[in-house]
Design a protein around this nucleic acid. Structure first.
Length: 428
RNA sequence: GUGAGUGUGGCGAAGGGGUUAACGCACCGGAUUGUGAUUCCGGCAUGCAUGGGUUCGAUUCCCAUCACUCACCCCA
C-alpha cells in the first residue's frame, strides 16, 4: 500500500502555499509596526516544560500531547502550543537581564494528538506573540489590538473579541473556595466531568455544556469569577477595557469565558466569528515565568491558528493571492534555437526577470498554451528566423502584439515593460 | 477517547455479484506552414482505499485495517 501522510497532517501544495506566504507576511508586517521581534524555538521540548507550564490538569497535557522517548531515554514532547517554549527560551537566555520588556512573536507548527476534524489537525500552525516584563493594562490592550488587526488585515469579517478576566492568585483561590462551598452540597447533581472540575478547577464548570450543571450553578448563586475579582484585578480589567475603547477595538465582556490553559491570570480573550470556532485567543500569564524557573515576570500573549484563519476566510468568500505569474516565456520554435533559449533564460533571470520555458518538447501551439497557463506576460520566440536575423520575436500576451527585438536589447526591453508591475509573489 | 457516515481515474461523480467500469471537468495529441479562445476528432482506470473471507465468480456481500467527514469532548 502506498504510504500516506500521517493522520491529521496536510501537504500544502503549490496553489495553496501562496496564501500561507501572504498570511505570514501580514503577520510579520503587522507585528513589525508595533516593534515585535521574531523568536524561533525548538519544535520539541522536554515533556516537563509543558507539564509544568501548560498545567497538568489541562486537556492538552492529560490527553493531547505527542510525547515519546528519544534514544537517550529522555521524555520529549512535540510542542502543543507556543507560549511555554518562548518563556523557557526567555528564561534560559536571560532576556530579562536586558532590562527592557521583550516583545516577541513566532510562527510555526504545533502538535496535538486529537481526532482530526474541520479546522482541527494534529499538526497545525500558529502565529503568536508573547510580551514579557510588563504588568500594566496598556500592554494588554496593545496585544489584543494586534491580535485583532492581524485578522482584519488577513481579510476576515464579522470578528468578535470576547473578553474576560479570570483573576489572580489572590481572587482565584477565594472564588474557588466559594464555588466548592456552594456546589459541594449538590455535587451529585453535576455531571461526571464537573464533579472532577469541582476539585481541580471549578472555574471550568462554567464551560460545561450540560444544561443541568448550569441550572445548579444558577440555583446556588455561584458567582462568576469576574464578579468577585480582587481590587487590583478589577482595576486592571477596567483599565484594559478603557484602553481598548481608546484604540477603537470593539469587544464584548463574556463572563463565562475560560481558557483551556492553566497559566492564565487576569485578562483572557478569544477572537471568533459567528458560526466558527475560535480563530485566535490569548491571555495574561503572570506566574508562568516563575513556574518555569525564571524571576517573577509578568507576561501576556496570544496564539492564532493559521488553518482556521484561512478556513474562515475561504468560507467568507475571501482569498489572499492571485496566481503566480512569469514575466517571460521562452518559446523554442526550432531545436537549433535550444542553446540560445537557455542563454536567454539565464540572462533574463540574471536581471531579475522571471522566466520559464517548455521542457517537454512541445509544439508551438502547446508552448503558447503553457505560457498562457503560467500567466506569462511576454513570449520570446526563438527559431531559425530569429537566429538568422539576431532578433527575437516578442509577443505581448495581453495585447497580442508582436515585435522584433535584438538579442542584446531583449532583457532591457522586457525589464522596461515589466517594471512597476508586481513581480510574482514578492509583494504581499 | 466515544458514536455515526463515506472511500470508484488528477478532480467531480454513475453503476452494481458474472467476460468493453457511464458521463462531466482537467490533462495530452491532432484539424497540412512556427502562435494563446471556441469548435471538431482522438487519447487517458488489466482497475473500483488496503488486507482477508464468502462464492463457480466480487469493484459490488461480510470482517478487519487505514484515511476522510460529522457529532460529543476540547481547542487553534
Amino acid at each position: 500500500m502506498e504510504i500516506q501522510r500521517p493522520r491529521g497532517t496536510a501537504d500544502l501544495l503549490p496553489g495553496t502555499v501562496e496564501a500561507w506566504q501572504v498570511l505570514e507576511r501580514i503577520v510579520r508586517d503587522t507585528l513589525a509596526t508595533a516593534n515585535y521581534q521574531e523568536i524561533r524555538t525548538p519544535v520539541f521540548e522536554h515533556t516537563e516544560l509543558f507539564e509544568r507550564g501548560v498545567g497538568d490538569t489541562t486537556d492538552i497535557v492529560t490527553k493531547e500531547m505527542y510525547t515519546f522517548e528519544d534514544r537517550g531515554g529522555r521524555s520529549v514532547t512535540l510542542r502543543p502550543e507556543g507560549t511555554a517554549g518562548a518563556v523557557r527560551a526567555y528564561v534560559e537566555n536571560k532576556l530579562y537581564g536586558q532590562g527592557n520588556i521583550s516583545k516577541l512573536y513566532y510562527i510555526g507548527p504545533m502538535f496535538r494528538y486529537e481526532k482530526p476534524q474541520k479546522g482541527r489537525f494534529r499538526q497545525f500552525h500558529q502565529y503568536g506573540v508573547e510580551v514579557l516584563g510588563s504588568e500594566g493594562p496598556a500592554i494588554d490592550a496593545e496585544v489584543i489590538h494586534l491580535n485583532l488587526t492581524v485578522l482584519q488585515r488577513i481579510g476576515l469579517k464579522n470578528l468578535q473579541v470576547e473578553l474576560n478576566s479570570v483573576g489572580c492568585s489572590v481572587c482565584r483561590p477565594r472564588h474557588k473556595a466559594q464555588m466548592v462551598a456552594l456546589l459541594t452540597p449538590r455535587r451529585d447533581e453535576l455531571c461526571k466531568e464537573c464533579q472532577e472540575r469541582l476539585e481541580k478547577n471549578p472555574l471550568r464548570i462554567f464551560d460545561c455544556k450540560n444544561e443541568h450543571c448550569h441550572t445548579v450553578l444558577k440555583e446556588v448563586g455561584a458567582p462568576y469569577i469576574t464578579d468577585v475579582l480582587c481590587e487590583d484585578c478589577s482595576e486592571h480589567f477596567q483599565s484594559v477595557q478603557a484602553y481598548l475603547t481608546a484604540m477603537s477595538v470593539p469587544f464584548v465582556v463574556k463572563k463565562d469565558l475560560v481558557r483551556g490553559l492553566d497559566y492564565y491570570t487576569r485578562t483572557a480573550w478569544e477572537v471568533t466569528s459567528p458560526g466558527f470556532t475560535t480563530i485566535a485567543g490569548g491571555g495574561r500569564y503572570n506566574g508562568l515565568v516563575e513556574q518555569v524557573g525564571g524571576p517573577a515576570t509578568a507576561g501576556i500573549g496570544f496564539g492564532g491558528g493559521i488553518e482556521r484563519a484561512l478556513w474562515v476566510l475561504a468560507e467568507q468568500g475571501g482569498s489572499l493571492t492571485d496566481a503566480q505569474t512569469v514575466d517571460a516565456f521562452v518559446a523554442v520554435a526550432d531545436t537549433s534555437a535550444e542553446r540560445t533559449a537557455m542563454a536567454v533564460l539565464a540572462t533574463l533571470r540574471g536581471r531579475g526577470i522571471s522566466a520559464d520555458r517548455d521542457y517537454q518538447g512541445r509544439g508551438m501551439k502547446s508552448q503558447f498554451k503553457l505560457a498562457d497557463r503560467m500567466n506569462a506576460k511576454f513570449v520570446v520566440i526563438l527559431g531559425e528566423a530569429e537566429l538568422a536575423s539576431g532578433k527575437a520575436t516578442v509577443k505581448d500576451l495581453a495585447t497580442g502584439q508582436q515585435e522584433e527585438v535584438p538579442f542584446a536589447e531583449l532583457a532591457s526591453w522586457i525589464e522596461e515593460r515589466v517594471k512597476g508591475a508586481a513581480v510574482g509573489g514578492h509583494e504581499a
